[in-house]
Nucleic acid binder design. Sequence first.
DNA 1: GATTATGCGTTTGTATACAAATAATGCAAA
DNA 2: TTTGCATTATTTGTATACAAACGCATAATC
Lengths: 255, 255
Amino acid sequence: MNEQLQPLKKPTRVGKAGRSGTQDDIVYAHIFEAILEQRLAPGTKLSEEALGEIFGVSRTIIRRALSRLAHESVVLLRPNRGAVVASPTVEEARQVFFSRRMVERAITELAVLHATPEQLNELRLMVREERDSFSRGDRGAGIRLSGEFHLKLAEAAGNAPLISFQRSLVSQTSLIIAQYESGNRSHCSYDEHMQLIDAIEARDAEQAVSLMMHHMDHIDSKLNLDEESASDDLHAVFSHLLQTKKRGGSVSAKG
Amino acid sequence: MNEQLQPLKKPTRVGKAGRSGTQDDIVYAHIFEAILEQRLAPGTKLSEEALGEIFGVSRTIIRRALSRLAHESVVLLRPNRGAVVASPTVEEARQVFFSRRMVERAITELAVLHATPEQLNELRLMVREERDSFSRGDRGAGIRLSGEFHLKLAEAAGNAPLISFQRSLVSQTSLIIAQYESGNRSHCSYDEHMQLIDAIEARDAEQAVSLMMHHMDHIDSKLNLDEESASDDLHAVFSHLLQTKKRGGSVSAKG
DNA sequence: GATTATGCGTTTGTATACAAATAATGCAAA
DNA sequence: TTTGCATTATTTGTATACAAACGCATAATC
């Protein structure tokens, strides 16, 4: 019955993701976190009733949470056909990265101007957590913390519209990584994150922006967005059939 | 009973704002249009039941429309206290304009690269409509079309995340204009819009961006965001009591 | 044998009923 | 007259019931 929702495990503790908000905030945060940690794969069907049972709330709440996620383009809401985790196409991925470059540049410049020592401390703390997660082998948490770092940086910039936009972009980026990351090495982004904080603390705007732009380059150099621009949806469908577990070089050529 | 919703008139024709979507799309579009045309003033209470009666749908639909509007920061959704049309503070207004500068620059550069002749034609058509509206004295429609011009330009740029962000920023800008515009002359933006299209058609990126930035300057030079930074909410409360209809110079001094 | 039609089961869309929270009103006391 | 409190009324939050749409499976027809 609920076999479509295999990756979603019932969260026993409402601690981390559940903020002190209303019920739909909790559901939203949990699904958002599940996507950020890639426990929910792109294309996964999100049945309202199943989710309602899992979280112990009615469909009304689930529906609102999905609506918010859909507005951030993290979830695709097809009329009369339910919600699925979005599967960004290559073109959509490019657009997201373009926007992110623009936003991250602005955020970095603002953070250099406005970030308080407390915020810089918090950022450092997050990077350490991120590093620990990766070294512990908890890739999911690492990716989530990496995303939250960029979100926190947006908060340090202190521009509300930018924060909300960044939230949408970061979660979409996570989806894109889940879908297109070439299985090379893991995200060793924490090193770049730390350098970035140093530059911001030194109030060196030029250096900070330069580091951020290189960071962006590194992120999308790990993806293979060059291929499959033609057989788009089809490839997404067949990808897990062709290379179920063996991530290898034999498929690297376009073909 | 419904005296709080005085500015909202029941739209007899569903033509312009009502797209071929589901019911909540129609409600969303109507409220959005009403805000864009400033028939709904900042702070106006948006009762779910009243709106439901007006549009002939249940609260469920209204609720979804309000939720979408809230996510675009056009409507403020206070827990257990209902929805109101947002009243941006001076600081929020500054943040919106900062973001808009950033986005409009990117949009202009992309439009120079990607705008098709058809899109340029459509843009010109919109500017003519805008000009006609102003010369006809229909200031509301003029402001709406001015906003839709910037939205259309975002579409011509062809970047989906940017479009959605721009939608949010444009509607917030309209709110800000409603709240802070000094009653000088009307928005003669259509002239600048037309020049902008010319520069884009000529594929002159530098000129187009320069025009756009000046356009942004003009927009916020019409606002008086410099004052009232201290007595923020209080002033908003008293403003319509002090100068109900007489827009004059006697109140211009900060005091 | 392939393709289209039809019925059934499941899932979403919408309305409404009930519970909870907030705002308004009236009364009493200082 | 004003301030504080208690009660009432209105409004929002949530759950659920019913209707409509979709997908799948079976069956009938070409």
